[in-house]
């Protein structure tokens, strides 16, 4: 039976969706089990992180800063950063850790990365929505002025995280040195993750360099989506799009290369 290219693509797509679905369920079961709240734990960690940091900031910085609620500012900053840090750290050695899954030919190494990333993203977004909803009830979180922009910012932030994961996963199989440097690198990247400050608070001379970071651009979009006209933001939507595309492509090429030499136990 000969299939046309389009049919082959459709069959392949259908298989990959099924595999990623199965991998995500497996990830949830192995990480969180079926006891007590089960898979809801995926949002527990970002949630706890967001709540505690927000409380700390509230004590250290007072109720508002530059006209924004400090609690909301901390929450909107920290939860995406948790996605970034987890997304990156969970992609290290992901192929060798999961090598027994590669016994099944339909499981591709990209599925491993995607499944983990999607679980992290779902956790981060659930925590974000949950916390925002609770804080809104207490008047600590504004009703988003532009939901579309907020979601677009989130998606771009996530896309860039995924692009990084696509590069780091194969690199970590090629070099063990990288593994040692990763935690400190993600830590150093925090200032350019858009977490602590808005571009508007930064001296104009430095601001242009600050805006090179795709994370900052995406974060500015998210915050504009929440606070709307009450704040000034600087962003270029093409920066995270291009950065994600270019880095993602490099990542895909590296994955392909690493698969050829991957030793499976």
């Amino acid at each position: 039976m000969q299939l046309s290219t389009l049919q082959k693509l459709r069959v392949g797509w259908e298989i990959q969706v099924r595999v990623i679905h199965a991998l995500m369920i497996r990830e949830l079961i192995t990480r969180f089990g079926r006891e007590n709240i089960g898979f809801l734990w995926i949002m527990a960690e970002p949630l706890l992180f967001g709540v505690l940091v927000a409380a700390m900031w509230r004590v250290l910085h007072g109720p508002t800063e530059h006209g924004m609620s400090v609690i909301a500012f901390a929450v909107t900053g920290y939860i995406p950063v948790t996605l970034f840090r987890h997304g990156v750290s969970r992609s290290i050695s992901i192929f060798s850790v999961n090598s027994s899954l590669l016994y099944h030919r339909q499981v591709k190494i990209l599925d491993l990365i995607l499944a983990r990333f999607l679980v992290e993203m779902a956790g981060g977004m659930m925590a974000y929505v949950f916390l925002a909803a609770v804080l809104m009830v207490f008047g600590e979180f504004p009703v988003p002025a532009d939901l579309g922009l907020l979601v677009a910012g989130w998606m771009l932030y996530a896309a860039f995280t995924l692009a990084l994961a696509l590069v780091i996963a194969p690199l970590s199989e090629m070099s063990e040195v990288l593994e040692k440097f990763m935690p400190v690198t993600t830590y150093i990247m925090i200032p350019v993750s858009g977490l602590f400050s808005m571009a508007a608070w930064i001296a104009p001379g430095v601001r242009q360099y600050f805006l090179w970071s795709p994370f900052v651009n995406a974060m500015e979009m998210m915050r504009k989506g929440i606070w709307g006209e009450t704040i000034t933001v600087y962003y270029n939507i093409w920066n995270p799009i291009w950065c994600s595309l270019v880095i993602g492509m490099i990542g895909l090429a590296l994955c392909r290369r690493v698969r050829k030499t991957l030793t499976v136990q």
Binding site: H21, I25, H104, Q106, V107
Partner: peptide
């Protein structure tokens, strides 16, 4: 169609139960 290599290693996930492994395999092989 070719099976996965049936051997001492691989094909299973040690931390999952026999049933969970069966469920996983049922899912990916539809």
């Amino acid at each position: 169609t070719v099976s996965w290599p049936l051997g001492f290693a691989g094909g299973f996930q040690g931390s999952l139960t026999g049933y969970d492994n069966a469920r996983f395999i049922a899912r990916i092989y539809r």
